[in-house]
């Protein structure tokens, strides 16, 4: 990044408070200043995306420009969230970065199959996010070309 253009909201789905602190630190380190919304489980992530319950006001909870999605989440796991988003036309090409732990080749494979090719490994460091920003820009350009 250092900033998505226009500065879109980043939705971070992470149940572990320390991992979220580490993530925020990495965002600051990568000088990413987009607004960040944090939810703690897969069900809340889906509520947010589909403007349900306490997230029904789109002005306060805008559709994010990108999601960082932990895989091992309470209630609805990250893969299931990804599948639901990819099955919805509106979110079929929204960039979703899957957040994995180091020994999760199975998770990576399932994420590919479910529609994400973007990964970042825990603990997330600024360099990861800077590297990802290039990939996201390219993907967004490609999706704009396809949709156009």
């Amino acid at each position: 990044m250092t900033s998505l253009n226009p500065p879109a909201t980043i939705l971070v789905v992470e149940d572990n408070p320390d991992d979220f602190t580490i993530f925020e630190f990495a965002l600051r380190g990568a000088q990413i200043q987009n607004p960040v919304v944090h939810v703690e489980d897969g069900a809340a992530a889906l509520d947010y995306m589909f403007a349900r319950g306490k997230y029904s006001d789109r002005a306060t909870y805008p559709i994010p420009g990108i999601l960082f999605l932990d895989i091992n989440l309470p209630k609805v796991n990250g893969i299931k969230v990804l599948e639901t988003l990819r099955g919805t036309r509106e979110f079929s090409s929204i960039p979703v970065v899957m957040v994995t732990v180091s020994d999760s080749s199975q998770d990576v494979l399932r994420s590919y199959e479910s529609g994400s090719s973007l990964f970042v490994q825990k603990p997330v460091v600024p360099e990861n996010l800077i590297a990802l920003s290039g990939a996201i820009t390219v993907l967004q350009a490609a999706s704009t070309v396809q949709e156009g």
Binding site: N16, D18, D19, T21, I22, F25, V101, K122, P123
Partner: peptide, 10 residues
């Protein structure tokens, strides 16, 4: 690994 990650970071 989670508490180890946290410990290392902080």
């Amino acid at each position: 690994r989670e508490p180890l990650r946290s410990t290392r970071f902080f």
